[in-house]
């Protein structure tokens, strides 16, 4: 690892104002992604993965507010940039693949044109070459009949295809930082492998750094350099995938793994995670937001959480790690 951080998120806290009070959605979130590195964000839905991505991209909705932190990227703090500078960066160096692909595509423009537009605007292609290059891109994401599909409008394509079109658009301009929010959810494993290989290729060739949001732990372990586990707006553990699978140190990470159908021989061997995420509107949230569900909780857990380094690139925020 060359260890040039492409993105360093430090002490990021985000709140949402809602009718029923202030929701402390992210608290002191910090992690970094090196050039050419792919870092996975995993955790149950509602744990703050998408909000982390939106905050970094500067696209939180109006009710959301960054209350602390920085996101250093190429020498500047993305959280402090003006809307105009950020929009400029977003087009050229930052790309995001959204969780819901259909809503992110322009419904009244043929998909081939949409890819060509990006190639012209940010990928250095000429108007003449762009249509051909767009079809090449469709081939890369394994769209069958790419020539015909390039002429289609999003509504004429299945959800899985729209998803691959989004991926093609996001990768077309060779971004320095890619944030992919569940990009392969719902795709079959062979197509998923192709997409992951493609991300890996760009990481290797152009040093693209990737934040890969997923709920598939095995996928994260196979294709990502490190896994960051989130729970209720906190990072509870960060580790290389292999280390996490071999020896998860946070009780929540261990439970997530025990619920994942991997090499297990029977369904009965899997166990669900007791309880649910705490209500983040509570004014008296405990320092450890997992403590209400935790079997290892002790008196110490009422103190502010420690950050313990337990191995190489392996950090855990817990008083009683496994």
């Amino acid at each position: 690892m060359t260890a040039i951080p492409a993105l360093a998120v430090e002490d990021l806290s985000v709140e949402f104002r809602t009718r029923s009070g202030v929701v402390k959605v992210l608290e002191h979130v910090g992690f970094s992604v090196d050039k050419g590195e792919t870092v996975a964000l995993v955790g149950e839905s509602g744990s703050g993965k998408s909000v982390t991505a939106f905050a970094v991209m500067g696209i939180l909705d109006a009710a959301g507010k960054v209350t602390s932190g920085r996101a250093m990227f190429g020498g500047s703090d993305l959280l402090a940039l003006s809307e105009r500078d950020l929009a400029e960066q977003r087009g050229r160096e930052l790309s995001m693949i959204f969780q819901n692909p259909r809503t992110a595509l322009n419904p009244i423009r043929r998909v081939g044109r949409q890819i060509a537009d990006v190639l012209v605007r940010h990928g250095g292609a000429t108007r003449n070459d762009a249509p051909r290059a767009a079809i090449e891109m469709l081939k890369k994401v394994r769209i069958p009949d790419p020539e015909r599909r390039a002429e289609a409008y999003p509504f004429e394509l299945s959800g899985g295809m729209c998803q691959r079109i989004m991926i093609a658009i996001a990768l077309a301009c060779r971004p320095a930082l890619l944030i992919a929010d569940e990009p392969t959810t719902g795709l079959d494993v062979t197509t998923q492998a192709v997409i992951m290989d493609l991300i890996g290729e760009l990481a290797g060739e152009s040093g693209m750094a990737t934040i890969f949001i997923t709920h598939d732990l095995a996928l994260a372990a196979e294709y990502c350099d490190r896994i960051v586990v989130m729970h209720a707006g906190h990072i509870v553990e960060a580790a290389p995938g292999r280390a996490l699978f071999d020896h998860a140190r946070h009780p929540y990470s261990a439970k997530l793994l025990a619920a994942t159908p991997g090499e297990t021989v029977s369904l009965d061997a899997l166990a669900s995670i007791p309880g649910g995420l705490p209500d983040l509107r509570r004014p008296d949230l405990p320092p450890c937001r997992y403590s209400g569900r935790c079997e290892r909780r002790s008196e110490a857990c009422d103190q502010p959480l420690p950050q313990r380094t337990v191995g190489e690139h392996h950090v855990v925020a817990c008083w009683n790690p496994l």
Binding site: S45, H215, K255, A259, T260, P261, L267, D268, S272, I273
Partner: peptide, 11 residues
């Protein structure tokens, strides 16, 4: 579904 909920539904 999340994995922890998936387990219960599959069972």
């Amino acid at each position: 579904l999340d994995v922890s909920v998936q387990v219960v539904i599959l069972q």
